[in-house]
Each structure stands twice: as structure tokens, then as C-alpha cells.
Write a protein that binds this DNA or RNA. Structure first.
Length: 418
DNA sequence: AGGTATTCACATGAAACTATTCTCTGAGTTAGG
DNA sequence: TAACTCAGAGAATAGTTTCATGTGAATACCTGT
């Protein structure tokens, strides 16, 4: 037994396909960023005045996920800091904050708290009036003469949750500060974001805009090849694997992050199969695995009311499937997977709750929950109107059949614990 | 036939409520001088 | 009298509920030919 285990451990070391896996991890910042020269140059030239201690224009970066926005911003940040260090010029601080992180998201309060923490202050997680946090923030940054560049990643998320007042306040903060100057770099995935926000904020915030176009398949290939050559050992990648990865990701609006993920998972899959090479089929397996893990993970972490709703949907879909196949002789024109509607889900959910002795939520709430599942990509939802028959959501489960059973198990399990 | 008006069954929004977590404050208590 | 404890007030958040209003199109109901 022990020998066996030792064997496994040995093989992990010896047969590893990776040379340095961390290079494929998404938080890795590479030395160079291919195909983003123009954007980086632009950012740099816009932010350059901070080196002389001048306030710069506020800046806005746009582009879909995985187009290198964050990476470019961080890259410029590092270069600027290096340079500022060498110059020994005016004091410069650059803080990066991802507004989408769990602990930060949603509220003005938490974003400020997080910023304060990064600047070396302390703020309790709750209990203080927001006003107090603001003044604390001002106090901290206005201690000494300096320039502060705030890089706010994914602020579209935040602004959707809270009003754009936050950004407005931030841009106007400069007038309240005596020694310090702030400039804001916003990063957003949502290209329509700017159109929706308050015009006042818009004019002050987006003095400069840079758009990050998606990578095309060739560029993705280039990126992947560069990283792969360092991350993997030599000769472990089958011909065409990189191209296929790139093609997959290019289909998803050129998401480089996804491409790298795919390659890494494919490597892990191949490793687990004791393959000496990463083959094309491993990419497909990796793709499935990513999808599966995503869905199951979501289901696992969802609270029980959500699970009950989802369970209702799964059950209803099953029943519908049976019914239509039986009725097919009667009405052959009927579509194969007849859709489910909000009302069905809610009534099924009610009985389900009763038999589980769980609290029944209002229809209003269930409606929201259904919508959230749609956002998570577990179901597909469309609002349709059946004329006099009313208006409702048409719900379709989009998780693949093999996963459905697994999902059912998970939910049943967690419900039994109650 | 053609044009309005209704109506269904929810969707969508806004506000208010609840439970929980956390800070802060000040009264009461305690121990030591 | 200084230090300590502990309850209560106030804030913020997440997750709801309550109340109100909105909506797309199949049907009902007119209208005049």
C-alpha cells in the first residue's frame, strides 16, 4: 500500500507535464503582454503626468472579459511605480481594487473600507455611519502631499448595485482635498455602461477612453504559445492543441483568460490520465470539466431556497419530457421539450416546500430567484406573452443531462440535512 | 372586416420590514489606594 | 477613583415581504359597410 502511494507521489513529480504551472494561473502577470502595445502606450501616455506630480485626466478602459484590461493597467501601474521610485519625485500611490470581489462588492461602504485598508488604515466591517468612513478616507489620503491613482476594476458591477453617486463623489473629492490629488482609472466589461450612467459623472469620469478589442484566434494562439512554452515541459503538447484552444476561446469573444484556463485544465486532465502528451481530446475533456465544475459549484453553494426552486425546475422538466413523449402520437406537432412557466415552478415549489417543512417564499421572490438562475447560466429564460393567457417566463434548463443527475443528488443530499 | 378595449398572469419596481452583525457609549460594578 | 463589564442605541447588510404599477398579445366587443 505504502509503496503504491509512494509510486503515485513519485509519478506526480517525474511525469509532470508542467514546468511551472503558475504561469497559466489567471493571476499571473507576465513580463510582456502581446498585442496590447497600443493600449499600453495610450494608458502610459495619459498617466505619465503623475510622474511630474500633476493630476491626470480620469481614464476609462473598456473591453470584454479576458481582453487584457486589468493586465495592462497593472503593468502600467508597476512601471509607473518603478519610475517614480527612481525619479525620487513627488509621492505617488497607485491602488488597484477589484470591485467585484465578494468582500468588496455591492456597497459604497465596503469599497471605501477596502481602500482604506489598502492605504494602511483600519475600518470596522459594520457599525459605522458611511459618512464617518468617508471622512476617515479623506483624512488618510490627505495626510501628506501625494498623488493617488485609483484603479477600479469592474466598476460597472458596483454602479449597477449602488447608484453612480459614488463615482460622482469620488471624482469631486479633489475639491475637498488640500494636499492630495486623486485620479480614477475605471475598468469595465460592459460596453454600454457609460451610456447608462449619470451624464455629470460621465463627463468628469471619462475624460479619456480606451477600448480593448477582443483577441482574434491568431493573437490568442500567439499568447498561448508564449505562455505554454514556459509553463509546460518541452514536447508535451501535441501539434494543434494550441490552435484548438485558441479557436475555442476565440469563439467566446476572444477571452484569453478562458483560453489559458482551458490549456491548464487540459494539462491537468492529461496528467491525471498518465498521458505523456497533451492531446486534442484533452481539450474537449477540459472544456466539459470547466463547464461541469462551474455549474455544480454554483449549485452546491446556493442556499436551500434556491436549491428548492432549481429542484422544482429539474423535476418539472423531467415530467414534461415524459409526458410529451407519451403524447407524441396524439399531437406530433408539439415541440419536443415543451417549456416550463413561472406558475408551474411556483406551484411545484410550494408543494415541495410543504413536504420538506421548509418556509414558502412569495411568488415575487421566487420570480427573482428564477431570474438569478438565468444570470448564472443554469437556466434560459425568456419573457413571453400568451395573449389572454397571461405573461410569464418561459424557462429552459440548459445544463447538460449528465450533470442534471449529479445536480439532483447534490440537492437531495443537502435537503436531507435539514 | 377592421378597429378598440379587456384581460390574463405574471413581470418589474419601490419601499418597508426582519434578523443579524458590528461599533460606540455611558451606567453600573469592581478592585485597589 | 481608575479600570472593567455589559446592556442598549445606532448603523449597515442580506433577504425577504408588501404594495403598486407595467405589459404583450390573444380574445371580446363594437362599428359601420
Amino acid at each position: 500500500m505504502v509503496a503504491k502511494i509512494q509510486e503515485i507521489f513519485d509519478s506526480v513529480d517525474k511525469d509532470s507535464l508542467f514546468r511551472n504551472k503558475s504561469l497559466l494561473q489567471i493571476n499571473h502577470i507576465p513580463e510582456e503582454i502581446p498585442h496590447r502595445d497600443d493600449q499600453i502606450k495610450q494608458i502610459a501616455s495619459i498617466l505619465a503626468p503623475v510622474l511630474r506630480g500633476e493630476r491626470t485626466s480620469n481614464l476609462f478602459l473598456y473591453g470584454k472579459t479576458g481582453t487584457g484590461k486589468t493586465l495592462s493597467a497593472l503593468f502600467v501601474k508597476d512601471e509607473l511605480l518603478k519610475r517614480a521610485d527612481k525619479n525620487n519625485g513627488p509621492k505617488l500611490k497607485i491602488e488597484y481594487l477589484n470591485c467585484k470581489l465578494k468582500k468588496v462588492s455591492d456597497t459604497e461602504y465596503r469599497i471605501l473600507a477596502e481602500l482604506i485598508k489598502k492605504l494602511g488604515g483600519e475600518v470596522p466591517t459594520t457599525g459605522l455611519p458611511t459618512e464617518a468612513v468617508y471622512s476617515k478616507f479623506l483624512e488618510i489620503i490627505d495626510q501628506e502631499k501625494q498623488l493617488l491613482v485609483l484603479i477600479l476594476d469592474e466598476i460597472d458591477q458596483t454602479v449597477k448595485k449602488i447608484s453612480s453617486d459614488f463615482l460622482y463623489n469620488l471624482t469631486r473629492l479633489n475639491s475637498e482635498l488640500s494636499k492630495t490629488q486623486i485620479c480614477v482609472v475605471g475598468i469595465s466589461n460592459d460596453l454600454t455602461f457609460l451610456e447608462e450612467i449619470d451624464p455629470r459623472v460621465k463627463s468628469s469620469l471619462s475624460e479619456e477612453e480606451i477600448v480593448f478589442p477582443p483577441y482574434n484566434a491568431l493573437q490568442l494562439q500567439d499568447i498561448l504559445a508564449k505562455r505554454a512554452s514556459q509553463a509546460f515541459k518541452e514536447g508535451v503538447i501535441q501539434q494543434g492543441v494550441i490552435a484548438k484552444c485558441a479557436a475555442y476561446a476565440a469563439r467566446e469573444h476572444g477571452d484569453a483568460r478562458r483560453a489559458l484556463d482551458l490549456l491548464r485544465i487540459a494539462g491537468e486532465v492529461a496528467e491525471r490520465e498518465r498521458s505523456t502528451k497533451i492531446l486534442l481530446k484533452h481539450i474537449d475533456e477540459a472544456n466539459d470539466k470547466i463547464e461541469r465544475d462551474k455549474v455544480l459549484d454554483v449549485i452546491k453553494t446556493e442556499p436551500k431556497q434556491f436549491q428548492l426552486v432549481l429542484y422544482s425546475i429539474i423535476k418539472l422538466q423531467e415530467n414534461k419530457g415524459k409526458k410529451t413523449s407519451g403524447q407524441r402520437t396524439l399531437s406530433s406537432r408539439k415541440e419536443e421539450n415543451s417549456p416550463i412557466f413561472t406558475g408551474d415552478v411556483f406551484s411545484f415549489y410550494q408543494t415541495l416546500c410543504q413536504s420538506n417543512r421548509a418556509e414558502i417564499l412569495t411568488q415575487r421572490r421566487v420570480s427573482d430567484i428564477i431570474q438569478e438562475f438565468d444570470m448564472l447560466g443554469i437556466i434560459n429564460v425568456r419573457v413571453i406573452s400568451k395573449g389572454r393567457g397571461g405573461r410569464m417566463r418561459e424557462i429552459k434548463l440548459v445544463i447538460p443531462p449528465q450533470i442534471i443527475n449529479k445536480a439532483k443528488e447534490i440537492i437531495e443530499d443537502s435537503l436531507n440535512y435539514i
